[in-house]
Design a protein around this nucleic acid. Structure first.
Lengths: 157, 157
DNA sequence: GCGACTTATATAACTTGCTTAAATGCTATC
DNA sequence: GATAGCATTTAAGCAAGTTATATAAGTCGC
């Protein structure tokens, strides 16, 4: 098989895809507005990542930075914005008061779920056109790429 | 199968992957320097996309914008930078003098090939760990996603 | 052919999502 | 209890986009 062709096509597709993912769809904005949040909320992919990460329990800023592959100040900024809109809350870890634990504001878990749902929709559509085997291979491919590019960028372990 | 899990994992992986892809690896910079180009060349994913697109022949700025999913001014800027470094050249289309055709500078096709090769390496590594079926499914998945997000962003046909 | 339009590209000003470097506040070790 | 070190934040800056606007070339009605 011609791997080179596939590699080139991936190099063409990945940046284009991310430009599309980053472009906030007006529909989504509407839906958020209908739920009573400010209309000008800009949910970037990074914010979505934070919201998904928090479904698995509270996280420190440092943990979020690592999970997202972002610098600690970057994580701080993402949390800032979400906190500004009342989605998440910070409180000090009683065990180590340097650590700031981030978690959903009470009752916002459900709102977060619906915001993520909006993002999930086009992805869900695309995946519904794949067989189970293809969907698994696709995600496996993403994992491999993330690992490989991480190693190339000199990521420590 | 639990598609929701796969969708969430994709939403977590994609932005992280793109942050890694966008981060220029110092190794690559070295290699470009060794080839006699300025050391401060910043090859972004967009520039790589242009170089790959040009392997299939000269392109107008508008065509590049469309292929990359970027606005015309965005494409102009990408071409600017590549022209600055002597990689590509502009000349008017004799058939329609509004059109600016972009092509490799004579002899730069080979240099471009090697620059793209650097980008290709981690991707190639990752893909070498997939079976043929998986690699095809992976690229098919990327195509589906690009299409689906494109539609969601209200792309006109 | 002349003027009103449309189209292709370019320029300018701004936005956003990150980055690194320095500052702050807490922990731990000696 | 000084000093080294870690988690987070603040500050400043950069790169890759965007929109709005300008310029220059082609098209069409008359």
């Amino acid at each position: 098989m011609d791997r080179e062709r596939l590699v080139d096509e991936t190099l063409m597709l990945l940046p284009t895809l991310m430009r599309l993912v980053e472009r906030p769809s007006p529909v989504e904005m509407d839906e958020i507005a209908r739920r009573g949040l400010a209309t000008d909320v800009q949910v970037s992919p990074g914010h979505i990542q934070v919201l998904i990460a928090l479904t698995r329990g509270p996280r420190s800023v440092g943990q979020l930075a690592e999970e997202l592959g972002v610098s600690p100040p970057g994580a701080t900024q993402l949390v800032d914005k979400l906190a500004e809109h009342g989605m998440v809350d910070r409180h000090n870890d009683p065990a180590d008061r340097r650590v700031v634990l981030v978690d959903y504001v009470a009752g916002m878990r459900e709102v977060a779920r619906r915001i993520v749902e909006d993002r999930r929709r086009p992805l869900h559509n695309a995946m519904s056109k794949m067989t189970d085997v293809e969907a698994l291979a696709f995600v496996k491919g993403l994992r491999l790429l993330a690992r490989s590019f991480g190693a190339a960028a000199g990521e420590e372990i």
